[in-house]
Simulated assay, not measured.
Amino acid sequence: MSMNISSKLDSTNSFWDVLIDGELDVSTCDKVKEHLYSLLDKEVLDIKVNLENLEYIDSTGLGVLIGVLKKLKVNNKEIFILNPRNNVNKIFTITGLDKIFKMEG
C-alpha cells in the first residue's frame, strides 16, 4: 500500500495543516519524517495532522510522530491528531499516546 502526504501553512492561525493518506508504516515512515522535519526547518509551528484517510499505522509510524512531537515540545508546540479512523484511534489508545498527543475528532 502506498502513502501520500501533503501540507500547507495556515498563516492566519499559525499552524501546519498536514494530510496523510494510506498507510504509515516501516515502508513509508521515512517519507513522512522527511516531510514533517522539512516543515519545521521552514518554521516551527503547531502541526495539525489529519488522519481521516489513514488506513493503518504501525509502531514505526508512531515513532516518527513521537520524534516530531519531541522537537516541537522544545519550542512549546504540539501535534494535533485530527479525525483518526477507529482502527487508527485504537492504536493511539492502546499505546497511551492519546494522552501524549492532542486528539481531535
Rank of each mutant, 00 (worst) to 15 (best):
M1E: 11
M3E: 13
N4F: 10
I5H: 10
I5S: 10
S6W: 04
S7V: 10
S7W: 08
S7L: 08
S7A: 15
K8D: 12
L9I: 07
D10C: 02
S11P: 01
T12L: 14
T12A: 14
N13C: 07
S14G: 03
F15C: 11
W16M: 02
D17R: 08
I20S: 06
I20Y: 02
D21F: 05
G22P: 03
E23C: 11
L24N: 11
D25H: 08
D25A: 04
V26C: 04
V26T: 07
K33L: 09
K33V: 01
H35R: 07
H35Y: 11
Y37M: 14
Y37N: 15
S38T: 01
D41K: 15
D41F: 05
D41L: 12
E43L: 13
D46L: 09
D46F: 05
D46K: 03
V49I: 15
N50H: 04
N50F: 04
E52V: 05
Y56I: 05
D58K: 05
S59M: 00
T60D: 13
G61D: 12
L62Q: 02
G63S: 10
G63V: 12
G63A: 11
V64G: 10
I66E: 01
I66P: 00
G67Y: 03
V68A: 13
V68P: 06
K71Q: 10
K71G: 02
K73H: 09
N75W: 04
N75F: 12
N76T: 02
N76K: 02
N76E: 10
K77Q: 09
E78T: 13
E78H: 14
I79A: 00
I81A: 10
I81F: 09
P84A: 08
P84K: 07
R85Y: 04
N86R: 13
N86S: 15
N86D: 15
V88A: 11
N89F: 13
N89K: 15
N89L: 15
N89I: 04
K90L: 13
K90E: 15
K90T: 12
I91A: 00
F92G: 01
T93M: 12
T95W: 02
T95C: 11
T95F: 03
G96N: 09
G96T: 09
L97T: 01
D98A: 04
D98N: 15
K99H: 13
K99F: 04
K102M: 10
M103P: 06
M103K: 04
E104G: 03
E104P: 02
